[in-house]
Design a binder for these strands. Sequence first.
DNA 1: CACCAGGCAAGTA
DNA 2: TACTTGCATGGT
Length: 225
Amino acid sequence: MGNGPELKGKINKIYSLLNDHFGDLKWWPAESDFEVMIGAILTQNTSWKNVEKAIDVLKRKKALSPSKIANMDKGRLARYIRSSGYHRLKADRLKEISLFITRECGGKLDKLKKEGLENLREKLLEVKGVGPETADSILVYALGKPVFVVDAYTRRIFSRHGLIGHDAAYDEIQSFVHKNFPRSIRKLNQFHALLVEAAKNFCKKKDPLCRECPLGGLRRRDGFI
DNA sequence: CACCAGGCAAGTA
DNA sequence: TACTTGCATGGT
């Protein structure tokens, strides 16, 4: 405590450097809000490449809707999403979230969007298979709520740059961002997207933003490590 | 061959 | 509360 202003400057600096470098990333890549939610489940501990294949199959089979997934045979659903890994487990989770959507708003996500952030977050966390990261991804990228999504990349990058401890809890990291970064849907959307993009593009050694990486500006000489 | 990828829930001490 | 383990395919 007491180092707020310094860290605040640092986190906003990271955002602006990444934003200048990558530009507007326009996340989440999907054709519908429901597709965002499905993708959020499928990408749990899984590369996005494998998730894209699974979503393509669901589209090809005309199965990408809450009612279709809720009613589909579980074994068949699991086969469709096989490429995303943990497919039997994720088939259950896709059905859970589809049933939730049906129950809460009859499949009309625009109706769900009218509810408050905290209320929605609690409800999402009650769905089996939806943890904090998945819930927050859905909130910001599907339902348009101003929350910051914390993921493995965020942890690595923030702790590497001394913003948080390497063992900081999810809610701690999220609160830190909410307190020191604009609570804007647009910017929170973009910030998480930038961190993922940076981690994916800048270091093959799984060490994003490290001093050897060509990250325009975010290097030791700039006081970032 | 080992290791990782846009986590989560259930079990154990 | 704080660890540990199972879940699984596809790429490097």
